[in-house]
Nucleic acid binder design. Structure first.
Length: 492
RNA sequence: GUCGCCUUCGUCUAGUGGUUAGGACAACGGGUUUUCAUCCCGUCAACGCGAGUUCGAUCCUCGCAGGCGAUGCCA
């Protein structure tokens, strides 16, 4: 039988790490077993729904390179794939359940429910939840309530005896006494929309879903869903509850732990391949040794058996490490393309500066963790005026020796660049110069760095010259030479 | 409260009835180096606790503790 799995998010907020992990595991499982990955939008909560969230869902999956075989936009044989377009289906099935005596209309107001809840908490009642007030209403009572204008919901009649068991690929059999299953949960809300439980079960059945992979927070509603499948007389799919993703304090990952939305990560300059790689490794492993995986590899080697049962803490530092690793794998051009938008946004560069950026990239590649790190690394582009003599003079050198070093360096750099020498050749020449002058390499490189950038910490000086342009660089070097000359005179 | 799930270095994890319990991130130390990084080398560091089964348990069983989750006209 063909594997059919789905990712069924609710567009009530930005896509976050936990959701993406679930999406990825579903997607990889589908691909690795030659099945189908279905996207379904569970927008039944009209209060919290937003168009922005829906767009964010599409953007996120696109960015990660995850393509759905069936779902919104692409369509498919079991559409529509957006639940708000399927309300008639849910209403029909809910009605069917009522007709079969497996569900009933409930007219309780939310005020009564609220009071009930407060009372149960105050009395520390062992049973919590709906008390079945409307479970056995007669037709007359119902008619009267309707006449009074009460809008009913439909509740599932959960058996009060017996127990329900479902099988989970990871967890094994999970059994729950029916009396402990959520008491008579609402299936159809008074606004005519289904609740998650109803819509989810109906759609998974109608769409031929074979495996339900979702976070472990859903385990408690497993028996409820099974009860629903049984009420309809449908086959129960295979369950696989995924370990949760936690923050460093052991609680469910949330904003207070740092960024959680993919949009944030993306804006900061995380690469999709890094995020995808790292996220795939929380709750899953291949052999404990290999840890670099492309999306294509995961599409082949992902397997349910290697999913971990225990919840995992999301490690921001390790994500950073992965990101740095992936940045280093980029070619000059790829990286320049990725970096340019950040520089443009910061007002540092323009499209016309692309070639200079390209020449700058090799000098910063190993220094980047996030793409956005490029901005502080180009601080030197802004001219901060005449540099202090102090930063032009390396340790264990004085103004005079720094001056002669910088002068010699200047001549050499100008000469080499005019001849079109590479950075490597330039570097060799400068090292030889240092030897000739009888000083350490720092004695030639640091005055140059300080002269060009006005800073003591910067990317390699040649890279900076490339980005700054020779004309501006030489202007700054000449200015620095003047500063040192004055300093020497002062000391005489 | 009730019900359920989980438990190997700080973190992600591998692993087995007999192993020096392996890898990665982090941390720490050293080396290379023109700053900052990178890179290289090394160090530290784990089987939650208590019984039982067994010649032998990290691994099997039971109990306990701790953690997390659910208990909504949210998903």
């Amino acid at each position: 039988m063909e594997v059919r799995v789905r990712y069924a998010p609710s567009p009530t907020g930005l896509q976050h790490i936990g959701g993406v992990r679930t999406a990825l595991f579903n997607y990889f499982f589908a691909k690795s077993s030659g099945g189908k990955f279905i996207l379904r939008v569970e927008d039944t909560d009209r209060e919290r729904y937003s168009d922005e969230s829906l767009q964010d869902l599409y953007d996120t999956l696109d960015w990660l390179g995850v393509k759905w075989d069936e779902g919104p936009v692409v369509g498919g044989p079991y559409g529509p794939y957006i639940q708000s377009e399927r309300t008639a289906i849910y209403q029909e099935y809910a009605k069917k359940l009522v007709d079969m005596g497996k569900a009933y209309y409930c007219y309780c107001t939310s005020e009564r429910l609220e009071r009930l809840r407060e009372k149960q908490i105050a009395e520390k009642s062992p049973v919590q939840g709906y008390d079945g007030h409307c479970r056995d209403l007669t037709d007359e009572q119902r008619k009267e309530l309707e006449a009074q204008g009460f809008k009913p919901v439909i509740r599932l009649k959960v058996p009060r005896e017996g127990s329900t068991t479902f099988h989970d690929v990871l967890m094994g059999d999970i059994t729950r006494e029916n009396k402990d299953v959520s008491p008579d949960p609402v299936l159809l809300k008074s606004d005519g929309f289904p609740t998650y439980h109803l819509a989810n079960v109906i759609d998974d059945h109608l769409m031929g879903i074979t495996h339900i992979m979702r976070a472990q927070e859903w385990i408690p509603s497993g028996p409820l869903h099974v009860l629903l499948y049984e009420a309809f007389g449908w086959e129960v799919p295979t369950y696989c509850h995924l370990p949760m993703v936690m923050g460093s304090d052991g609680h469910k990952l949330s904003k207070r732990h740092g960024s959680t939305s993919v949009r944030d990560f993306r804006a900061k300059g995380y690469l999709p391949e890094a995020l995808l790689n790292y996220v795939s490794l929380v709750g899953w492993s291949y052999d404990g040794e290999k840890e670099f995986f492309t999306r294509e590899e995961l599409e082949k080697c992902f397997s349910l058996e290697k999913i971990n049962k225990a919840p995992g803490v999301f490690d921001y530092q390790k994500l950073d490490w992965f990101n740095a690793q992936y940045i280093r794998q980029k070619s000059d051009k790829e990286l320049a393309d990725l970096l340019l938008p950040y520089l443009k946004a910061a007002g540092r560069l323009d499209d016309k500066d692309y070639d200079r950026l390209l020449a700058f990239v090799p000098g910063v590649r190993d220094r980047l963790t996030l793409l956005s790190d490029i901005v502080p690394m180009t601080d030197f582009l802004e001219d901060h005026g005449e540099p202090d003599a102090a930063i032009l003079i390396p340790k264990k050198m004085d103004a005079a020796s720094s001056l002669s070093s910088l002068k010699a360096v200047y001549e050499l750099v100008k000469d080499d660049l005019a001849k079109g020498r590479t950075d490597d050749e330039l570097q060799n020449d400068l090292c030889e110069l240092a030897q000739g002058l009888g000083i350490k390499n720092a004695g030639v490189f640091n005055p140059l760095r300080a002269a060009v950038t006005g800073l003591q910490v910067s990317p390699p000086p040649f890279s900076c010259i490339h980005l700054l342009g020779e004309e501006e660089s030489y202007r700054r070097i000449e200015r620095a030479i003047e500063v040192l000359e004055r300093e020497v005179e002062k000391n005489v």
